[in-house]
């Protein structure tokens, strides 16, 4: 078995809104991400997948629970060690327009991490920037230009170069291709895949486009209203989804093939409930076609129903 690079133990992130109201954005997630894999995380908007990603990177502190990096609780590390973790655990954001400072030159944007961690200076720093730009498929001549001079796909490449600058080991990619055009998405996805091999990276890939997630991921976790619903390897998830929510989610993806007559699509009724007031018991029960009495009484346990296939559903208990 691979060694886990990241482990989360019952992570919860709650946000207070107004008096006595809590948004349970992430509500108890325990997973392990193995060294060298791409872990896909899917879910609808409001399912807490981005918050979960930010918690792992340390951009927000979990309300409860702990993040383990390479076997040790990040919170218990010394200042110096924490700094190392901060460097090795990085994030790529969705919107390259908003995540690059419009007043900074590309070279300086990329070097920000290098400067902050004191990794290189002077000539070395410059060479490192050139090298990074080349590695993400851009011409090194662009160092003096500004973000607005680039297209969305190029900006995302700059964002990736900035992330790579500090030699990370683990990267959370938070919807890195959602803002891009179809023909550009494949370019960036290929780039991420190549870099994973050449830089020896591990990814947590967050997205809502299921076909892209399937393509890039080794294992996929499905989130709904802050909880993990199912987790298994990507082929298995698509071939034999166990959780009714996964089944509905997969069947909702339109297939680009007109010769396939529309499969028996499970069209879920209604909207996802508000995370302020999630249903008691199983959170999915209000939209679940298989809801039983027990579903409203007790939250299903997170269980390994087959080897390396986890789900939280009373149908399998």
């Amino acid at each position: 078995m691979n060694q886990g690079i990241i482990q989360t133990i019952d992570i919860k992130k709650h946000f207070a809104i107004g008096r006595q109201q809590l948004v349970k954005s992430v509500d108890g997630i325990s997973i392990e991400i193995y060294q060298g894999e791409t872990f896909g995380l899917v879910g609808e908007s409001g399912s807490g997948k981005s918050t979960f990603g930010k918690t792992i990177v340390g951009l927000t502190n979990p309300t409860e629970g702990a993040v383990y990096y390479e076997g040790s609780n990040v919170k218990d590390l010394s200042k110096k060690e924490q700094q190392r973790v901060n460097r090795e655990v990085q994030i790529i954001f969705q919107d390259p327009q908003a995540s690059l400072n419009p007043r900074m030159q590309v070279g300086d944007i990329i070097a920000e991490g290098i400067d902050a961690h004191g990794l290189a200076k002077g000539k070395q720093r410059k060479e490192r920037i050139y090298d990074l730009l080349e590695r993400v498929g851009m011409n090194p001549d662009v160092v003096k230009r500004y973000p607005h001079e680039f297209s969305g796909g190029q900006r995302q490449r700059i964002g990736i170069a900035r992330t790579l600058a500090v030699k990370p080991k683990f990267i959370v990619a938070d919807e890195p291709i959602s803002a891009l055009d179809v023909s550009i998405q494949a370019q960036v996805l290929n780039l991420l895949n190549d870099l994973k091999d050449s830089e020896d990276l591990t990814y947590l890939f967050i997205a809502h486009d299921l076909s892209m997630v399937k393509h890039i991921s080794d294992r996929i976790g499905v989130m709904y209203l802050g909880s993990m619903m199912e987790l298994t390897n990507s082929q298995k998830l698509f071939n034999e989804p166990k959780h009714p929510y996964t089944q509905a989610l997969l069947s909702a993806v339109p297939v680009p093939d007109p010769t396939i007559s529309r499969r028996d699509r499970i069209v879920l009724q209604g909207d996802p409930p508000s995370p302020v007031n999630p249903p008691n018991g199983c959170k999915f029960r209000t939209r679940c076609p298989h809801a039983m009495e027990i579903c409203s009484l007790k939250a299903p346990e997170w269980k390994e129903i087959q080897s390396d296939h986890w789900t939280a559903c009373h149908l399998y208990s």
Binding site: S151, D181, S183, Q185, A186, S211, F238, V253, P256
Partner: peptide, 25 residues
């Protein structure tokens, strides 16, 4: 052709490298 090639096929077992359209609009 490029558009059709650049989308991954959910039903393919094997993971082939995507074939993007190079360049930008």
């Amino acid at each position: 052709w490029g558009l059709l090639e650049s989308i991954p096929n959910v039903y393919h077992e094997k993971k082939e490298r995507l074939k993007p359209i190079e360049g930008s609009p």
